[in-house]
Design a protein around this nucleic acid. Structure first.
Lengths: 136, 136
DNA sequence: ATGCATGCAAAAAATTTGCAAAACG
DNA sequence: CGTTTTGCAAATTTTTTGCATGCAT
């Protein structure tokens, strides 16, 4: 997928600077869930003047713009992924750290129902399964 | 609820020291979801020689023993609650920070199904709703 | 007694911030 | 050209750890 967030962000009044473009490119070329440090390391390979602060600042900005999602899986640092794909939840393989994405319409519906019955409207949610691969 | 983890822990070979007893008492007198610092502050009121390190070490120990659950709600520090009550998930009021507990058998079943269909066995899961109170 | 637990201070890990200089539109 | 953004270093926040001493069993 091409990095076509650029126009979208520009329209939202976000300046597209060199560091931001580098980070956006990295995000659109990745389908994993890298943390800030990983993004930083890859960014430095492209432009060695980029700083870790800028990565953090950019992640916050992109999150506010809805361009990425931030995850905080058990313990570790925040990990990011581009938004825009269809919504999904995560299953984390506790042995390998692998992240498997899944989607359940049923779950989505249920949580709406639960929230409504408690008198709430959902802004966002986290649904993470932590498991171990079954031997067949 | 009385602090009756003591016997249970003792049987598991865990030494019951003064700091640990103080912390266990605090946990059993609380039905919120305090973080380490809050527990530390309350502990100091009972015994001013307790250190924050010990609180952290004790929380890790109790977690391993299954006596408490650790939560990492969006952003903030780890927050703890005693285990032993029936399993439940959390809805976090984004305006007040209040934590509302709920339980859905349907959700429990669904996640088992999802994990199984992906070839996994669930060790634990996190299901958190972040929402805003509906005005009626 | 003897090993495990504690307090303290220092280290680590993750993230944020102040500020002067540089870059964007 | 006026703002916004950046890099850097330093500060914060949360948590962990090394080590000498103290306490539980």
């Amino acid at each position: 997928m091409k990095n076509d967030y650029e126009k979208q962000l520009r329209d939202a009044g976000v300046r597209i600077t060199r560091p931001r473009r580098v980070i956006l490119d990295i995000l659109s070329q990745t389908d994993g869930h890298p943390d800030a440090l990983e993004i930083f390391k890859r960014a430095v390979e492209v432009d060695n003047s980029i700083s870790l602060s800028t990565v953090y600042r950019t992640m916050k900005l992109l999150e506010e713009q809805g361009a990425i999602h931030r995850h905080a899986f058990d313990g570790g640092p925040s990990r990011f992924e581009q938004a825009g794909n269809q919504h999904h939840d995560h299953l984390i393989d506790m042995e390998t750290g692998d992240v498997i994405e899944f989607h359940s319409e049923m779950i989505e519906k249920l949580q709406e129902e639960i929230a409504r019955s408690l008198g709430y409207e959902i802004i966002h949610h986290r649904f993470e399964l932590y498991g171990r691969k079954l031997k067949k």
